[in-house]
Design a binder for these strands. Structure first.
Lengths: 249, 249
DNA sequence: CGGCACGTTGAGTGGAATCAAGAAGTGTGG
DNA sequence: CCACACTTCTTGATTCCACTCAACGTGCCG
């Protein structure tokens, strides 16, 4: 939770992520950092963007976790996706007249507000960065699709394992996970609302995964004990995450 | 099923759709039609794009219905979205290294192949059209999100009604539905795979909707008998479809 | 200490899947 | 013209999984 100043030498998580898609020049990196100069904090468990609101803004998450979700008339909640550092928040709603979903902070977070006109300017003057941003947006959409498939056609245990593996991969991409574990601030209610389960049933599912020696999810930390078995169980193919081989130099 | 020549006076479905988002000049309309000049047919029940394949192409659907879906190891299928005239096919996979889903023709279809470089050229020279295309892409993504919410948190009857209402709205936008009904070539197996149900249970669900006097789904045609009651049941809010008021002139 | 958020477990129920079978409609070839 | 295959739709009986309701544990914080 230490907000690095934009002038810092350390690249932002967004820069790290886009560097996987393409090689970035010094100038492009600097431009990306400049785009994220305007930082601010936002407290845990509060809404950052609301569906109804008309004035849109997009953010880049710098630190902490967020989630996007929709609420139903009957009080139900469906979490559409989680966001980790380097991810955009509310990007899609820049173009639609009204934002179609809510975004809330899971933990205390640090975001960089990206004014629409600055983004447009960047797109017009830096075509390579524009392509990289489109790649990131396509990847986000592919994750939503994979999520849809999971809820529609995978069993609770398989889809839970899948979700965990996806988060692990995403965090590794921005340097926030090691080989076998990662910090995960989600509680079982939130995760259940993402997986289309009740918290109670998720709890039992997690227990089964634990008893099979596959993984543990406890006290803000996920430990993956048997990654190959998890991947086999989940039918996890990371092609949709488009993890390209790191470029030479 | 009559493929109109690109030089025809009648605007393509894509043009009709984008004209809802913004006012198009004659020149822009012409440019859009030119983009879709290269037309070809594709037979029903055959694959147009496959996940594994590396060479990507994007298409604009001119006539007929298509669907995008993913297959699972256990033989399951999840239909992610249906496409109707005016919709893009395989647009997202232009940026990801490998296409992450399959696209198949539901009926005999006519598509226009959009070469990646022509699309890039259009984006660079026609910023207003580029914005309109991004709007369409955002709308597509919003539909996937809504679909996810339905499968995750809505009951089978509610989500079935919701899907039907969405298709109705989409078809109206391109002039393919009247107020109370539309031609729908989907069979119950395909629709069930979209809704995350078995075909058997969908059949019973459709019967309930029929017995309640809400709608009938039969012989390739959907009749909506009580639209207000359907919308109330489904909790249908069309904001995510971003149906803007038609522009003056 | 009490209150609260979060996690855990048990018992019972309901609803969607599964298994099984048949009806209705369509196309094809003898 | 009819027999046959095939697709699509429909219904019934049964099973099982995930939800619901209820309760209790645990750790944290005021």
């Amino acid at each position: 939770m230490s907000p690095t100043p934009a002038s810092s030498a350390a690249p932002s998580a967004l820069t790290r992520k886009l560097a996987v898609f393409t090689t970035l020049t010094r100038a492009e990196e600097a431009r990306l950092e400049r785009l994220q100069a305007q930082r601010r904090r936002h407290p845990a468990r509060t809404e950052l963007l609301h569906e109804a609101q008309g004035d849109h803004a997009a953010f880049v998450l710098q630190d902490g976790w967020a989630m996007s979700y929709k609420l139903l008339a009957d009080g139900g909640r469906q979490v559409v996706d989680f966001q980790v550092p380097g991810d955009f928040l509310g990007l899609r709603s820049l173009l639609l007249r009204t934002s179609d979903h809510n975004v809330a902070a899971v933990t205390d977070i640090v975001v960089a507000e990206v004014p629409p006109r600055e983004l447009r300017e960047l797109v017009e003057t830096e075509p390579r960065l524009a392509m990289a941003l489109l790649w990131a947006a396509s990847r986000d959409e592919a994750m939503v699709v994979e999520h849809l498939v999971g809820i529609g056609r995978r069993s609770p245990m398989v889809r839970t394992a899948h979700q965990v593996l996806e988060l692990h991969q995403r965090l590794r991409l921005v340097g926030l996970a090691d080989d076998g574990s990662f910090a995960c601030p989600l509680n079982q209610y939130v995760l259940a609302d993402a997986l289309g389960l009740t918290a109670i049933h998720l709890n039992r599912t997690l227990r089964q995964l634990r008893e099979r020696g596959l993984m543990t999810f406890r006290k803000g930390r996920v430990e993956i004990h048997d990654a190959p078995a998890m991947m086999a169980l989940a039918g996890f193919e990371d092609a949709y995450l488009d993890q390209r081989a790191p470029r030479p130099s």
